[in-house]
Design a protein around this nucleic acid. Sequence first.
RNA 1: CGGGGUGUAGCAUAAUGGUAGUGUACACGGUUUGGGACCGUGCGGCCCGGGUUCGAUUCCCGGCUCCCCGACCA
Length: 565
Amino acid sequence: MRQSRLFGKTEKTDRPDVTLTSHKLLTKGGFIRESVSGRYFLLPLGMRVANKITDIIREEMNSAGAQEMISPTLHPLELWQETNRDNAGNFGLMLVTDRRGARFALGGTAEEMFVDVARKFQLSYKDLPFNIYQFSTKFRDELRARGGLLRVREFVMKDAYSFDVDATAFHSTYQTMAQVYDRCYTRMGLSAKQVLADNGYIGGEYCHEYIVDCSAGESRYLETADGSYCAHEDVATVGLVPMNSEEPLEDMEVITQPQWVKSMADNIKHYGEPEWRYLKNVVYKKIDTGDLVIVTIRGDLEVNKTKLEKVLGAIELLEEATSDDLARLGVKPGYVQAWGHTATYVADLSLKTVRNFIGGQKTDTTDTRNVNYGRDFAHPIEADVALAQPGHVSPDGHLLHERRGVEVGNIFQLGTHYSSAMAGATFMAKDGSLQPYYMGCYGIGIGRTLATIVEIYNDEKGIVWPESVAPFKVHVVALNTDDQALRDWADGIYENLLSRGIDVLYDDRDVRAGEKFADSDLIGIPYRVVVSKKSKESGLFEVVSRSSGETHYLGEDDLINRLTS
RNA sequence: CGGGGUGUAGCAUAAUGGUAGUGUACACGGUUUGGGACCGUGCGGCCCGGGUUCGAUUCCCGGCUCCCCGACCA
């Protein structure tokens, strides 16, 4: 490609509102351009990188036996109604209506469509397993797009759907896909960690995210030093350690308490006891029914809404209660009682780690102390609904550390979640019975992966692409192009490299050397070959590695050997 | 969706109740030519609607945009 013909230009100035490294470099380098918030043009340079990423994923998927296909982008709304996802929680489906009034969802994920295509065939156990996938544009009506390509409203995703006869067979498919993901990310130069995560509105029982550690990331997870436990904050289990098991149980009593004692900080000031000593009550409301849920938890812990939703079977259906909601209970914020209200009470397991709590029946002037869970009160639902924090321990008792990164992909166990919900999504088993498919699904966001690579591979001058995903393998920079003979000679070198099948960007522009070098550094192609008067005279080309800065001087044949090896 | 901010040329910015200046980019000419060089010339702009006013880019109201924080979220 001749750079003089390349659509898309580099920019010298930074936009002041662009703070993220990948966003800045991709914009300045002419890889992407914003259309409106959360929607981007992928320019020719960016498209080349996206294609390299896509090719790697396609190769690995195909070698694992998955089959590429494509589904319509507009999904008949009835399909989403069949699985009750048309108005699930906060997942904003975007709808379009055609001229006949038929309603469609703009696909944000495609479980229903792939189940639908499967059930159009009379499948037998002999047809299973299979794994079908697509690369297609997904639409997510994000409340807030941010971070350049890291969180957008419209993006290309590889999504795969596997169909197995049962959990045992599925397990092997899941492992295979995990290996495919490992190979994909490794080939792209990314070190992606498999992290236990939450299925959310996708459904199913378990899933894993692939997270690349990076400060720009929005995914927070917790891990032990040796990696023996690694889980997203949404699901991380809080290991229970008794706080004061040596303390004798005291009798519960009502005590007077000054009126100024309202918050946790006030408690500490008044009683001089640490946070874990107090009972804390957190109130949620079910979005669909308006029912209130009170979680009682140890004072030093916070409630993890995701875990709570899972316990209550109310995925994406809880929100924090407002003071108006509390008024329905007859209380103000800060005065919720650990027992006695008309609501669904949930006890966090941490209540069993403390003897002689303070709190639980707060009024303006009194409260209770020496409260013991199981003796003085107990809730019908007991579960681990606490938010894991660094400093807590894993279930096997090791210290948890906090990590942050970008979720570049995920794999989900779906089980029969969709195939049971959708009529006729069955195969004929060996014994002649109709069984729902046992499914999994597997996604990789192309643009987000691309941006993550830039987050990891850059320096003060620009992007430093790993060779596997670089837009070109070599950047030929021609200098002294005002001399027609030298220009013709440089053209010849370029044509020669092209004819050998080398992926080359040829800077034939009539601009100064400094500008060419600056652009070359910014674009970040792995090898730069300078073609100049000097090289013509010496017969040697300066070859610079973008990543190491190492420079070699090679003759034309050696150069070609090196670039084709 | 709540809070805050913003909107002037492709991009970055300045000033102003009386029709807008600079840098960069772009076009042309010249001097340059291995790290964004210089000189000259030129092209190009006040988010939209309403109000106040003799006159609004400026002040007021509304809308929209984009950014940040929160909520939310592969």
